[in-house]
Amino acid sequence: MTIADSRPASSPAPYRRPRFARWMERHGKWLIIAPPLAYLFVFFLIPFAFALKISFADLTLRVPPFSDILTVGANDHIRLALNFANYKYLFTDDVYVLSYLYSLRTAFFSTLICLLVGYPMAYAIARSSKSLQNVLLMVIILPFWTSFLLRVYALEGIIQEHGVLNWVLLHLGLIHRPLMLMQTTPAVYLGIIYSYLPYMVLPLFATLEKLDASLLEAAADLGSPPWRAFLDVTLPLSMPGVIAGSMLVFIPAIGEFVIPSILGGPNNLMIGRVLWDEFFSNRDWPVAAAVSIVFLVFLVGPIAIYQHYNVKQLES
């Protein structure tokens, strides 16, 4: 541009930039946009289309174990055979509906407890001095970097029959027989809260940190008791953090596999485990695909809420 502009206006032949440069100026941004767009499209979005297709297929005894829904007939007619039996099966066999509801309940209550524990933690960090804040954030983030699988396994060492928790409670005389927590539903709750607590604290901290303290002072000056100021000022202003944190815990918790599989009992039927078994033990891929699709349909709502708040926060 600078070269073209600096030429005298009377110059007879206007300066033409080389064709490549002009092309780059108009379409060059696609060199940046296209690779991630194409990659995620092929390896993240397209797979859902394949799952949808296979959910309409029949179970067969070949490799891979499902039929083609599109077949070319004898007289070159393309036949589309949609088999809705997999979906019908999901709603006739109780196990899927029950496990889905059970997963929802488990995820809901663990998210609630995470919020009740995480909110005061985030609040305390937000009110600390800047230097302490950095240390505390580091402390909260650090477990997030260590292995998820190993942390769930580590929890086993605390809550098992001869674990630390029972040892302490027995020695304090609070209980007389060891608590049998392993392979129970409370163990699954504990596992989810333990694993996902940092996901709750961080977005909450992000919104609470930005909160203007003078608003609270104003509320106090106008005669609000602290609890009233909290309900009227702090809580509404921290709603984006509450929603982002809750969704970050709730959505993955519904589909959680590792925690119920290690800490939960054999009849703990969370949807993730049912799917896993359908896949690896029963090898019924069309039904597994149908379960995934139905599951996904139910997730669209919560994901959209999360997306909405997340994008707004990132772009503000």
């Binding site: 797979p47 394949f50 993955p252 596999f257 993730g272 599951f295 997730l299 999360y306």
Partner: peptide, 13 residues
């Protein structure tokens, strides 16, 4: 936020 099991199954398919 996508549950891993769903991402995994769809990618496998």
């Amino acid at each position: 936020v996508m549950p891993e099991i769903i991402t995994g199954i769809t990618q496998l398919l």
